[in-house]
Design a protein around this nucleic acid. Structure first.
Lengths: 146, 146
DNA sequence: ATAATCTAGATGCAATACGCACTTAGCTGT
DNA sequence: ACAGCTAAGTGCGTATTGCATCTAGATTAT
């Protein structure tokens, strides 16, 4: 079990994103918030996600539909088919339940904690950035194969 | 199959959380930041996570080790076994590479965007909260089975 | 000395979260 | 008839994470 390896790929500039640097798990509260603002259907929610902060956070429609399903299954929202007032295929219109409203409240509390977390992170980064040169402190015995 | 998640309900509160209301994907940047502050081994990083904002965000050690592996595989960090200065089993000591430092920088930029996102979310929630009683407005055609 | 405990790293498995590709189906305009 | 838009959904693969469990060296207690 030796660490060898050391073959990093990529044409140097690590143009290879390899995965989105994005925090996940935000779709559910965002949908709850949109439904808190008023009843709508999934397609509209998928577009409306950009309005609650997910501007540079493109969410696939399939994700939206699936999260809505799950929320309904848990009793957080209710749905009904709207065939009358539409110009197009029938829409499934969603509405928050009382439980869903409470759940959103809990989400909001947890997101305030998340907000603190991100703030502390950024604060810690800003504080350690100036000390760029010599932070070898912990261990000078280990030999890296660079 | 049964995960022993705490499915209790608060007094008066009904509604089975069923999953953690937590934003995911934060472990990787947190570890990068800790390594930006100085070289260490995984066990120490696992504890140190609480210092960069993950106080109420308990991260399982296995997650830490796996994220470190992945980061090394991508060339963001390097590891070496430290058998000398330790009091205990050998430690795998990690160090940020230059690529890892750039990657952290990108993460920080994206987390500032995430910060904005969460702020807009909370702002939108606070703005819509006063209208708590009857916002059935959007669609009165649909009939929910309540 | 032997056993319990702490430190350190790791794997197997399951659940969740999500995107991409694709399908179905109704409506509209040419 | 056919293309294009709206709306909802499914199949499948990948990523992230937690829980349980394993290995093994070092320290402490019996």
């Amino acid at each position: 079990m030796h660490r060898g390896r050391g073959h990093h790929r990529g044409p140097g500039g690590h143009g290879d994103p390899a995965h989105p640097r994005r925090i996940r798990g935000f779709v559910e509260p965002a949908l709850l918030l949109l439904l808190h603002q008023g009843d709508t259907h999934g397609y509209d929610l998928a577009s409306g996600l950009e309005g609650v902060g997910l501007d540079q956070y493109p969410v696939d429609p399939s994700t939206v539909y699936r999260v809505l399903r799950r929320l309904e299954h848990r009793g957080m929202i209710l749905s009904a088919w709207d065939t009358e007032g539409a110009s197009g295929p029938p829409r499934r219109v969603y509405r928050l339940t009382e439980e869903g409203r409470e759940y959103l409240t809990a989400w909001v509390a947890d997101l305030r904690a998340t907000d603190d977390m991100v703030h502390r992170f950024l604060g810690a980064y800003d504080r350690t950035f100036p000390a760029e040169s010599s932070e070898a402190g912990a261990d000078s015995r280990a030999q890296y194969s660079d």
